[in-house]
């Protein structure tokens, strides 16, 4: 039996439920400021007013790998964006570098259209595959950014260095690019190329900032608490090691 995993799961489930119940008693949401999401909210409102399009790239990752969590975070944001912007003249479009992720993107958009009573307006190519290798995905996405009246780019998924090409395409068209990845190389190149890079766990917090619901907010609080516990454990471990070093 994997006891450590059981403890982690029980902690997170318990903390998420507890914070969710606690948050019902509070009038204000208590989330730290991440300016990127305020700019995304602004870009979303502007896109609806202007009749321009938001592009959400959810990257390329195998659904059976841990990297799929980044794509799931991207899909969560796509759902929120689609719920707000699907009535626009140019509804949001999602790109993926994997067939399964593209199907999930279509399902996510379809559900948002259904929720808004716009099911007839839904088209399958709003969630599409633009390439199946890292660079072919980037090359296909660059075309979309350039040709389809995109007013803001959100890269939320698992990306490597190829993300720089997509972010650069946005820069050349002078449109806002917010981007996060779960890989270190992806985050490094996006820090240099995106207008608003999302570092570390910020990528996974996106849906909460777009108003996805109390359980999303609660999961961020659970995550913050866990981070403090891990940091405290690391410091305690280092001090203990130092102490043992002095003794021997």
């Amino acid at each position: 039996m994997n006891l450590a995993m059981l403890v982690v799961v029980l902690y997170f489930v318990g903390a998420m439920i507890a914070f969710s119940i606690l948050s019902r008693r509070q009038k204000e949401r208590n989330l730290r400021d991440i300016p990127a999401f305020y700019r995304l909210q602004g870009a979303l409102e502007l896109a609806v007013e202007d009749g321009t399009r938001l592009h959400v790239a959810i990257g390329r990752s195998d659904i059976t790998s841990p990297q799929s969590a980044a794509a799931l975070a991207g899909l969560s944001m796509l759902r929120r964006i689609a719920t707000v912007a699907s009535e626009s003249d140019n509804p949001p479009v999602a790109t993926a570098g994997d067939g399964v992720l593209a199907i999930l993107a279509q399902d996510t958009l379809r559900a948002a259209y259904q929720q808004l009573g716009l099911f007839g307006a839904f088209e399958n190519d709003l969630g599409r595959v633009t390439g199946l290798t890292p660079f072919s995905y980037a090359a296909g996405t660059i075309h979309l950014v350039r040709d389809e009246e995109v007013s803001a780019n959100l890269l939320a998924g698992s990306f490597g260095i190829e993300a720089a090409l997509i972010a650069n395409a946005g820069e050349r068209r002078q449109i806002l690019t917010l981007a996060g990845s779960d890989t270190l190389t992806g985050q490094a190149v996006l820090f240099a190329t995106a207008h608003e890079p999302l570092i570390g766990e910020e990528l996974f917090a996106g849906a909460a900032y777009l108003g996805a619901g109390p359980l999303h907010d609660a999961s961020l609080h659970a995550q913050d608490l866990a981070r403090w516990l891990v940091a405290a454990g690391l410091v305690a471990g280092a001090l203990f090691g130092l102490f043992l070093g002095f003794l021997t």
Binding site: F12, V13, M16, A73, Q187, G200, F204, S219, L220
Partner: peptide, 16 residues
């Protein structure tokens, strides 16, 4: 530090 953050985010995303 970044990888710890990503790991915690991955766990909460999966559990959500």
């Amino acid at each position: 530090g970044i990888l710890i953050g990503v790991s915690l985010g991955t766990i909460t995303t999966g559990l959500r």
